[in-house]
Design a protein around this nucleic acid. Sequence first.
DNA 1: CTGTTAGCGCATTCAT
DNA 2: ATGAATGCGCTAACAG
Lengths: 378, 378
Amino acid sequence: MEIKRQPTVLDVARRAGVGTTTVSRVINGGERVSAKTFASVNRVIGELGFVPNLAARVLKGERSKTIGLIVPSIADPFFASCAEVMQKVARSFGCLVVVCVTGNEPALELENIESLYRRVDGILIAPSHATNKPLNERLDSLAIPVVSFDQPLRHVDIPGVLTNNYQSAKEMTRHLLQHGYERILCMGGEATFYTMLERTRGYTAAMEEAGMTPAIDTAPRIRSDEETAAVLARHISSPTPPRAIYCLKNTTTIQTYDALQRFGIKVPQQIALAGHDDFLLASSLRPSVTVVQQPVEEIGRTAANLLFAKLAKTPDKSTTPPGHGARLVRLRSKLILRASCGCEEAAPGHLLSKFKSAKSAAQDKGAKGAASPGETIS
Amino acid sequence: MEIKRQPTVLDVARRAGVGTTTVSRVINGGERVSAKTFASVNRVIGELGFVPNLAARVLKGERSKTIGLIVPSIADPFFASCAEVMQKVARSFGCLVVVCVTGNEPALELENIESLYRRVDGILIAPSHATNKPLNERLDSLAIPVVSFDQPLRHVDIPGVLTNNYQSAKEMTRHLLQHGYERILCMGGEATFYTMLERTRGYTAAMEEAGMTPAIDTAPRIRSDEETAAVLARHISSPTPPRAIYCLKNTTTIQTYDALQRFGIKVPQQIALAGHDDFLLASSLRPSVTVVQQPVEEIGRTAANLLFAKLAKTPDKSTTPPGHGARLVRLRSKLILRASCGCEEAAPGHLLSKFKSAKSAAQDKGAKGAASPGETIS
DNA sequence: CTGTTAGCGCATTCAT
DNA sequence: ATGAATGCGCTAACAG
C-alpha cells in the first residue's frame, strides 16, 4: 500500500526518458508518436500505475466525462429503469453519471442544475413542470447540451423524448367505452404535470367523442393510500357510481386496486379498472391489471443517445451553446389488455402439464446453471 | 445568453478592486476579511454570477464534493431505494453522487472503481462477492474511505452495513414450521452471493433444528420467469412435493407466486409461500405475501452516514488511508406475516362503510376538480 | 516525430 | 486585514 504521491506525466516522462508532451500524446491515443516510444511509454505507465488526473484535464478545458441526470425520484421504478439504461449508454461512451433527485420541487431542480453546471458535459432531465420559467431559462443559458425526457421543456430549444400520452390515454378510454361502460372515472394525483395533463386530455377527448360526460378527480399532489381510498369511497357511494376507472399513473392504479379489494368490490364485474403505466406484478394480480405500457428502456436509451449525439457534434472545449436543432422524439406506448378492464383473463388453468415435459430435460444437475443468456430482465 | 467566458476569481478581484486572495477568502467563508470588503466582494460575485471552478479546486487538493455509489443494479427496487436516501444524505453534505452499475460482474466492479478513483471523495459499494480478492485488495489500497452495504467485504478493513440475513431466514423458516409444514423448499438464484448464502444457512439451521431435511434448489445466476416455473414444476411433480416454499429473494418470490397462480395451485392451502425481501404490492396480492422485510432506507442512510463520518475524520488533502476502525453494523429485519404462509388474511370485507361518512361532506361539484388541497382528508 | 514552455483557476505561502 | 507570486497536473502552441 504505497502512500506515495500519485505519479504524474512528469514522473512517467522522466522514467521513460521522454518529454511530457510525448506522454500526453501516448495517453491520448498516441498520434504523432513512433511505435517504439509509444510502447516504452506505455510500459512505464503500467509500471508506475499512472492514471491521468481528471481535474487537471478539466482545468485545461477537456471534458469531464461525466453527465448529470436529474429526476424527481430514483426510487420510482420508471426513473430507476431509465437511469439504468442511461448509465449503460454513458459507460459505452466512457462517461459516468451523477444522479440528482428533485422530489419534483422546482427549487431543488434549480439547485441541482447549479451544482451540476461546470462539472458535467451534459444533462439529462425529467422536469416536473414543463413551463417552469426560471428552470427553462437557466437550462437555456447553460452552454452544455441538455436533453429532457418524460416531460418536455416548453419555450426553449431543448430536445426531449416523450411518449404519446394523449393518444394512448384516448385509446385506453376508447377501449373501456367499447366494453360498454358509460360512467368512466378518471383518477389521479399530481394533476399539474404535463404527462398527467396530456393523459387527462386524451381521456376527455375519447369521452366526448363518445358523447359521454368526462368525470375527472385529481389532486395537485400525489395522494396517499388513504386519500385515494377516501376519494374512491365517495365516488362509489354517489348516486351515479362509476362503472369503470382509468387511473392516470401507476401508484394511483395500485392504490385504487388495493382499495377496491378492501371494499370487496369485484373487478371488473362491478367496476372495471385500467391504468396508465405498467408495473411489476400487474400481470400476476388476480384479476391482472390492464395498463398503458410505456417503452421505458427505449425512452432512456433514446434520451441518452440524443445527448451523446449533441456532445459528439460539439467539438471539445467549444463553449458554443448547443445549436438549434431541438427535436421532440415521441415514442409509442402500448395497450396491455389484461383482465381488470373486462377482457378475458389469460386462461389461468393448470398449465403445469406444459412443464411436465421439461422435467426429464432439466433432470441433470438440478437445473443448476441452466441460465438462458443475458437480457432476462425484460 | 452571454457566451462570455465564465468569470474567475481574477475577474471578481479586479472588479471589486481587491486581490485574488481576498476573493478566495470570501468564497471560503470570509476569514480574515473585513466585513466591508466581504460584502462588496460578495456583491460583485453576485453581479458577475461567479461560480468557483471545481476542477481548479480539486487540482489544488480540495475535495471533489462527490461520492461514488457502486451497485449491481439501480433498477432493482432495493438498491434504488438505497440510492435515493444516500443521495439525500450526500446532498445534506453538499455532495453529489455518481452511480455505477455492475450487473454483479466482478470485472465491471473493478472497472468502475478505477473510473471512480481520484474523482470522488469516497465510495459506497454493494459488492457482489464478499471474497473477491482483486476487488478487496484494490479497495484497500484506495486511500479514500469506502463503506460497503448489503454484503460485507471480507479480509479488509472496510466497514459495512448489513442485515441479519441468517437470523431472519431462520425465523421465517421456523414460522413456516410452526404452521405444521414439513417439506419446505428453499428456492432462489444467485446462490453464490453472501446474502443468499446467509439466508440459506438460516433456513438450513431452522430445518435441522426441527429435525427436517433441508431441500434447497438454487442457481448461480438469477433465474428467468420460465426457469423458475420449470424448476417449480419439477418439484411439484415429484413424489414428495413441497408443502411450503421459502424464496431467497423478492424476484424469486414474485416468479414463484406467479408460477403457482398459473399452475392453478392454491396458496397457502396447497402450497404455502414466504419470501425474503418485501416488495411493492406484496400486501395487495390475494393472497398477500408473507416476507422478511429489510429496513432498506435505514441501510442506505446508515451506510452514507458512516462514509461521511469517515470523511469528516480525515482532514482535507490528507492522503492518509482510512485508519483502522472497520465496523460491521448489522440492522434487524422484520417478519411481515401476511396470508401466503397460512396466516389469516387481514379481513378483506366491505370496509366501504368506514368511508361512507365522507360522502355528504364531499358532495359538492360532482367531484370534479374538487381536489382537496393536500392531506386534508386523512 | 519530439521537447520546451505557458497557462487553465484556484488556494496559499509569505510579505506588507 | 490584504496582496503578489507560486504551483497543483495536464494539454497545446510552438519550436526543433
